[in-house]
């Protein structure tokens, strides 16, 4: 199961890298979304995918899944939510101000003398 998950995460990373190397800002942001999905999946996988009950003591199971990676993922998810929403608004603002979403046109040292 871990091998399968690793391959899936790898595909996500590949797609993310490909998207982040493209010109359009929106594609780049989609790439960052995929990258964080991949990272979160990877934490879950690396914590181990052995069978056990959900980490609730009320379940009275013999063994539980590891609760620590889940807490880490939850933290990482909200952080990447925050950053992504900031990034999206920033992209919107720059589209309004600069009039382009093409990263190639966002270069140069204009107006800073």
């Amino acid at each position: 199961m871990e091998i399968l998950m690793c391959i899936v995460a790898g595909i996500l990373f590949t797609a993310a890298t490909y998207l982040m190397l493209s010109k359009s800002i929106l594609r780049i942001i989609i790439g960052t979304g995929l990258l964080s999905h991949g990272a979160h999946l990877l934490i879950l996988t690396m914590g181990g995918l052995k069978k056990g009950a959900a980490p609730l003591l009320g379940e009275h199971a013999k063994s539980y899944v590891d609760p620590l990676p889940q807490a880490l993922i939850l933290t990482a998810i909200v952080i990447s939510f925050g950053v992504t929403s900031f990034f999206l608004v920033l992209a919107y603002r720059s589209y309004q101000e600069l009039g382009t979403d093409d990263m190639d046109q966002l270069r140069g040292n204009d107006q800073y003398e």
Binding site: I25, A39, I43, M46, G48, A76, S80, L106
Partner: peptide, 27 residues
């Protein structure tokens, strides 16, 4: 606006790498 977009992109990537490295080390 232009430069912060690049700055954020670089740091988003490095943060994701940080999470990945932590995952490996935890494993």
């Amino acid at each position: 606006l232009r430069e912060s977009m690049k700055y954020i992109l670089v740091n988003v990537i490095s943060s994701a790498l940080f999470v990945i490295s932590v995952a490996y080390l935890y494993a």
